[in-house]
Amino acid sequence: MSMLKEIQKSLFKKKATVLYPFKEREKVHIPEGFRGKIVFDRDKCTSCLLCARFCPSGACEIVTDEKGKRPIFHLELCLFCSQCQEVCPKGAINLTEEFELAAFDRKAFTIR
């Protein structure tokens, strides 16, 4: 009968569901230190290429631009393990709390 009591209670309780994508967006609580979208700071990068060496899924591609070698991050391959952030000696790579990463265009997944 303990179940009956619980059922009665939830009849008048607030619903547990968060109507996330349409309403109640603000209720989705993202804690500090969440591993989300990668942000890259070109000015801090020293072209040490450690990020590409330790990336487990090959999401870090090394290209050459006017200042020398640098990584490009492919979010469609990324595991969000933040290993690149950990090994970066200059703190040029950061994982933000942004998690809504779906897009129609593949280009949106490439972080320059």
Binding site: S10, L11, K13, K15, A16, T17, L19
Partner: peptide, 11 residues
């Protein structure tokens, strides 16, 4: 749904 603390059909 209400008894299970859910929302049920909505949209």
């Amino acid at each position: 749904a209400r008894l299970q603390n859910r929302v049920g059909p909505l949209y």
